[in-house]
Design a protein around this nucleic acid. Structure first.
Length: 719
DNA sequence: AGCACGCCGACT
DNA sequence: GTCGGCGTGCTC
């Protein structure tokens, strides 16, 4: 009678043994329903053995192995084991974060085989439609070729319903996807740089990591599409990761257009549970040729994986910030290595980790330094010194003049300020009081329209006080600039302009972001005010001016990654200006116009910036020259959190090659009424650090600490 | 994580 | 007399 070693979604770093009722040996990678305490749980069989791991335990029989899904392959299981090991996170929980939520439910999950639909007789179908039925005719026209359900759905809301009706009337037939021959629609011709990049990616045998450094507008996506076309032709699958769900729809549309009839699965948190599970199954069965998704898609089983693409690889959203704190970019590289396939990391401003890997020769650099659309000019960039300058509500006279010019020419302007709310703080001029959150160590942000003060960290809200609670002074003023204040200022300075603010507050309602993008494209907006929401990946052909306000904060921050993020953000937002035939202009208001970061940005010299930054990091002993992990603790009092961390230091294994720093209060010490502290561990060797953590974590886990919640963050992005 | 067991305070 | 507070311990 075989014993099953089962991974359960339980925060314990071990597997659980069950007796199998049958003697089948191909149960590894399958779901199993097991009794657990007085509950029934769904687990995943990771191993099958003739002997129990611990004979002293009483072992219950498993209820049954579910045979509805393709078993997880050894390749994916290896990837999950690596994650558990590398991030020191319980394997059972790794398994369950990697699987779609549906699979944790007891019950069978059925996914019909993916197929495409095609008109039996395209001409007859078209002839049967009235000339004025334009949508119907468009759908019919499309169905001359095999089309997937997703493609039809993307065409028009009614298209899929229509296709189903025709299918019922036998006007359409379904074609198994395997029988659909790959079609690749024509795209723009590649310039020599792009062609060289595609050739380099295709040329390699087995694993290779390519760092595709492409300036904005250089056509990175076109390189991905060509590289993907090549591996699809070879019958392989592609995995494409993007940082945000906001970016998936437009990329998905471009992919569908290029590969008509091909099953493209979109996986991100915006996709409904059932659909996500179905997409996962289609990828696992090998029916889907392309998986396009956010970080969670990195675990999707792909039996014929041929290429991995990570777009905007520098983006921090690839790192999960809770639970299993994995970096999807790093996991993607590891996965490509395991699978022996090439991976492309694309960015205009690569992470310094990746850049250093290229410098050291571990990654191959592919550069795109020309704009793909011939004739398109890079934006002209200018710094506006703001020191000792009279500003109008934070705006330089030249900024206002430039906006005025755009208005006169009927072009769009974007004012970029990465701070939402009306003002970051409210201040009493008499006693110096500032409104602070009672639950966090943070200032309360003024939201003037709602007449409320809000904590952007914990969500606490209160009324705008009529007078200073400290001294009773009625003259309390919002200090500093937020997007709401900029919006008010610009609306009053340019009363004829149509002003739209785009930030998390104004775009809270579902679909409002899409609606705003549409309005911008339709030319219904003159002045845009936005946070980083607007900086990423969106094309606005009529936008010719980008003005950056309040960027200096990233120059002299305590966070050693702040300047890297600032450079990336500015390069990205600058890229929004003048993408079509109209030249763009970028104005950056700053108190430090001589700062090397701005100088490199103006010269569009990322290599120079990276070299300076890496030299500083090497000198100061920061990543990527060292590897870090942070142990964070949170408790009702700071003393409890620190005491736990001190205990952790005492439990730390002896290691001359790992440095364990003293516990310190977290930079946001209080958050939602909990006090937080942390402790940094670092080592020059990645495997040394890994071995240290592997020895340390079991000791910490065996500590009984009801009051302290703690977590480990390997390769933290923020300290 | 759940869920039970367990021992001390205010209620129909 | 019980309902229920959350501390402690266990789950193959």
């Amino acid at each position: 009678m075989p014993y099953l070693r089962v991974a359960l979604d339980i925060p314990l770093a071990r597997l659980f043994d069950y007796m199998a009722e049958t003697a089948e040996l191909d149960m590894v990678g399958k779901r199993v329903v097991v009794p657990f305490g007085n509950r029934r749980l769904v687990g995943l069989v990771l191993e099958v053995d003739e002997l129990p791991a611990d004979p002293s335990l009483k072992i219950k029989p498993a209820e049954g192995v579910l045979d509805d899904l393709p078993a997880l392959s050894a390749a994916v299981l290896d990837l999950l084991r690596f994650c558990a090991d590398y991030y020191q996170y319980p394997l059972g929980q790794v398994v369950h974060t990697a699987l779609p939520g549906r699979f944790r439910e007891v019950g069978y999950f059925r996914v019909p085989p993916a197929c495409a639909y095609q008109a039996c007789d395209p001409d007859a179908l078209m002839a049967s439609l009235k000339p004025q039925a334009r949508t119907q005719r468009r759908v019919a026209g499309l169905l001359a070729q095999p089309r997937s359900e997703a493609e039809l759905r993307a065409l028009a809301p009614s298209a899929w319903k229509l296709a189903q009706a025709w299918l019922a009337q036998d006007k359409l037939r379904s074609v198994p996807l395997a029988a659909v021959t790959l079609q690749v629609a024509a795209g723009p011709a590649l310039n020599p740089e792009q062609a060289a990049a595609v050739a380099a990616i295709a040329a390699g045998q087995g694993f290779a990591c390519h760092l595709l450094r492409g300036i904005t507008g250089s056509g990175k996506t076109e390189v991905y599409l060509h590289a993907i076309a090549a591996i699809l032709r070879a019958g392989r699958q592609a995995l494409v990761l993007v940082p945000e769900i906001n970016l998936t729809p437009q990329l998905e549309a471009r992919f569908r257009h290029r590969f008509p009839g091909t099953a493209i699965v979109s996986l991100h948190s915006g996709v409904a549970d059932g659909e996500r599970a179905a997409g996962w199954v289609r990828a696992a069965r090998g029916e889907a040729a392309i998986v396009l998704g956010t970080r969670l898609a990195v675990f999707t089983p792909l039996p014929r994986l041929g290429l991995v693409v990570v777009d905007e690889e520098h983006d921090a959203s690839f790192k999960q910030q809770d639970g299993l704190r994995y970096s999807a970019r790093d996991i993607a590289v590891y996965r490509a290595r395991l699978a022996g396939v090439p991976i492309v990391l694309g960015s205009a401003t690569p992470s310094l980790e990746s850049w250093q890997n290229a410098v050291a020769g571990r990654y191959r650099r592919l550069d795109l330094v020309q704009r793909a659309v011939s004739g398109a000019q890079p934006p002209s960039m200018r710094l506006l010194p703001t020191r000792r300058q009279p500003l109008q509500d934070g705006l330089h006279a030249a900024t206002l003049a430039a906006i005025g010019e755009r208005l006169a020419r009927g072009e769009q302007s974007l004012v970029f300020l990465n701070r939402r709310g009306y003002a970051p703080v409210i201040h009493c001029s008499e006693c110096g009081w500032m409104a602070a959150c009672t639950r966090c160590s943070a200032r309360l942000t003024v939201h003037l329209r709602e007449r409320r003060l809000r904590c952007h960290h914990c969500g606490w809200e209160q009324h705008f006080p009529p007078a200073c609670p400290g001294c009773g002074n009625a003259d309390i003023k919002p200090v500093g600039q937020g997007t709401q204040r900029l919006e008010a200022t610009l609306a009053s300075l340019f009363p004829e302009a149509r002003v739209q603010r785009i930030d998390r507050d104004s775009m809270r309602r579902k679909g409002s972001f899409e609606a705003a993008l549409k309005a911008i494209h339709a030319g219904e907006i003159d002045i845009l005010i936005g946070t980083q929401m607007l900086a990423k990946g969106h094309d606005f052909p009529a936008l010719t001016l980008v003005a950056v306000v309040g960027a200096d904060g990233g120059l002299y921050s305590a966070d050693f990654r702040a300047s890297e993020r600032l450079y990336a953000q500015l390069a990205q937002v600058a890229g929004r200006a003048g993408r079509a035939d109209k030249p763009g202009e970028v104005l950056i208001q700053t108190d430090f116009p001589e700062h090397p970061l701005y100088q490199a940005l103006l010269a569009d010299d990322y290599a120079a910036f990276a070299a300076t930054e890496l030299a500083e990091r090497k000198l100061a002993g920061f990543p990527p020259f060292l590897h870090q992990a942070v142990l964070r603790a949170e408790a009702d009092t700071l003393a409890e959190a620190i005491a736990f961390l001190n205990r952790a230091v005492a439990l730390a294994p002896e290691s001359s090659e790992v440095t364990v720093w003293d516990p310190v209060a977290a930079s946001m010490m209080r958050l939602a009424s909990r006090e937080r502290a942390q402790l940094l561990v670092q080592s020059a060797g990645r495997s040394r650090l890994g071995a240290f953590l592997a020895a340390w974590m079991p000791r910490l886990r065996s500590e009984r600490n009801a009051k302290v919640r703690w977590s480990l963050d390997v390769d933290p992005l923020e300290l």
